[in-house]
Computed example of a mutant assay.
Amino acid sequence: MQNKKVLVFLAKAFETMEFCAFIDILGWARVDYGHNLFVDTCGFTEKVISTFNVPVIVDKTIGEINVDEYDALAIPGGFGEFGFYEEAYDERFLKLIREFNAKGKIIATVCSGAFPVAKSEVLKNRKATTYHLKNGYWQEKLKEFGVIVVNEPIVVDGNIITSYCPETAPNVAFELLKMLTSEEEMTVIKKVMGF
């Protein structure tokens, strides 16, 4: 089984619940089921502060990333009120997203994590979703980037996974696991984790 690597990008004010799903599910697959799935966390700085003020020390900073080393990019969403878009919309991150997409690599997002992907123009004329409550306000904002918004919990369009709220985070991580392994393998891990 060949090694596969996922880059989990943490922009300032990311949501911890959305971040943890990727770490735990890919961790269970590696540790308990022998999948050679490895995760690197990444940010603009070595320490990234989450929405609710939890600091996370990342493995790498954005300048150290070589896209060829990774099979997928995972992007947890975050709160604009705490500065999520300041980093999520940084041109260096948008360039990284474009590079992952150009090489056909998986991009998995939770909730507002779809916005930097849309801003990078990678989602133009493609199906996606984002936060669905608050009268569809955020889905309407996503449409402004030329996205075909689908009001479903998880939307997969080719190599891109988007979802609509924190509750979907584990299922996005399972969808990513399925794309990296197989439906059968993912189902085994989902079951042992109690989902």
Rank of each mutant, 00 (worst) to 15 (best):
N3E: 15
K4P: 05
K5N: 13
K5D: 07
K5H: 08
L7Y: 11
F9E: 12
F9M: 14
L10D: 01
A11N: 09
F14D: 01
E15C: 13
E18H: 12
E18I: 00
F22K: 06
R30K: 13
V31I: 14
Y33S: 04
K47E: 06
K47I: 12
I49D: 03
N53Y: 03
N53T: 13
N53S: 07
V54T: 13
T61M: 04
Y70A: 10
Y70Q: 15
D71P: 12
D71G: 15
A72R: 06
A72K: 10
G78K: 10
F79L: 10
F82P: 15
F82D: 11
A88W: 07
E91Q: 12
E91H: 14
E99S: 11
F100N: 00
G104T: 13
I106P: 00
V110K: 11
C111D: 10
A114P: 01
F115C: 14
V117C: 13
K119N: 10
Y131A: 00
N135H: 05
G136L: 02
Q139G: 12
K141Y: 15
K143I: 05
E144Y: 04
V147F: 08
V147S: 07
V149F: 03
V156W: 03
S163W: 01
A169T: 04
A169I: 02
A169L: 03
A169Q: 06
P170S: 06
P170D: 02
P170H: 00
V172Q: 09
A173Y: 06
F174Y: 12
K178T: 07
V188T: 09
I189F: 05
K190E: 10
M193V: 03
F195P: 04
